[in-house]
Amino acid sequence: MSQELKERRRGDYPFFLDYRTRWIDNDQYSHINNSVYYHLFDSVVNTYLIQHASFSPMASNQIGLVVSSYSHFFSPLSFPAVLDLGLRVTKLGSSSVSYEIAVFEEGVAVPSVVGGYTHVFVDRHTRKSAIITPDTRSGLEKLQGPSSKL
């Protein structure tokens, strides 16, 4: 699977969010610390949900809980790089969605990192599984398949 992920290209992702790295993103080895990538994953997913899937994490009766995550690192990145975060949906269930995120350095065709996670949508108060709302599902469906450049 790692080789397959390494072969991803920008056209595989329908949505992009840019990120300007910060000095604090670097670790003692002068590259972006592994934990920062999970912050980036969370940022691109939640930006998309809010802007394109009618999902308001603070106002909705539903929340998405991360139940699994992964990350494959292919080449290091460091400050002051500008990154392009590509997002797509790899699996959409009735109450869950799996995302794949690729991290590209601006102007570079191949990803430095590919990772992702699975959200299970639950009722905010009971934490019981909840069917993804129609508006959110419609937004998530746009992330399936090759790029449509949202």
Rank of each mutant, 00 (worst) to 15 (best):
Y38N: 00
D84P: 01
V67E: 06
D12H: 15
V97I: 12
H39G: 06
S2F: 09
M1G: 11
V113M: 09
D84I: 03
H72E: 15
N33P: 06
L17R: 01
V110R: 10
T136H: 03
I131M: 10
T47L: 01
F41H: 08
V45R: 12
E105F: 08
F55E: 00
H52P: 01
N46R: 02
L77E: 03
R137A: 10
V120D: 07
P134A: 14
S30G: 00
Y19S: 00
L40E: 05
D27F: 09
I101N: 03
H31S: 03
P146T: 13
G11H: 10
P146Y: 14
V89C: 02
F16W: 09
P146L: 14
P14D: 09
G116V: 09
S71I: 15
E4V: 11
L17W: 14
N34S: 12
V103F: 13
K91T: 14
Y38A: 04
S60K: 03
H31E: 07
A81C: 10
Q144V: 13
F121D: 01
V44Q: 04
S71R: 05
P146Q: 09
M58D: 11
D123I: 05
S75P: 00
V113S: 02
F74L: 12
S96M: 12
D25L: 12
A130Y: 05
G115V: 14
D25K: 09
L143V: 08
N61Y: 08
P146S: 10
I32V: 15
H119L: 02
S69I: 02
T21K: 01
S148P: 00
V103P: 03
S2A: 10
S129A: 13
S35Q: 06
D123P: 11
A130C: 05
D18R: 15
G115Y: 13
V66Y: 07
V120R: 01
L40V: 08
V89Q: 04
V89I: 10
H31P: 06
H125V: 15
K6M: 12
D12V: 10
V114P: 08
I32E: 02
S30P: 00
H72T: 09
Y48M: 06
S75Q: 15
G93Q: 14
D12G: 07
T21S: 06
N33K: 07
Q51E: 15
T126G: 04
G145I: 11
E106K: 15
S112M: 03
V45K: 06
D27S: 06
T136A: 05
Y70R: 00
T118F: 08
P80V: 15
F73T: 01
P146M: 14
M58P: 01
Q28Y: 02
G107W: 10
V45Q: 09
V108G: 02
L83H: 08
H72F: 07
Q62C: 03
G64F: 06
S60V: 07
N34K: 02
F16H: 12
S54Q: 13
N34M: 05
S35N: 04
I24W: 04
S35T: 10
T133E: 11
E4H: 08
V108Q: 13
L143F: 06
M58W: 07
H31V: 12
G93E: 12
G145M: 13
S112V: 01
P80T: 05
Y29D: 03
Y70D: 01
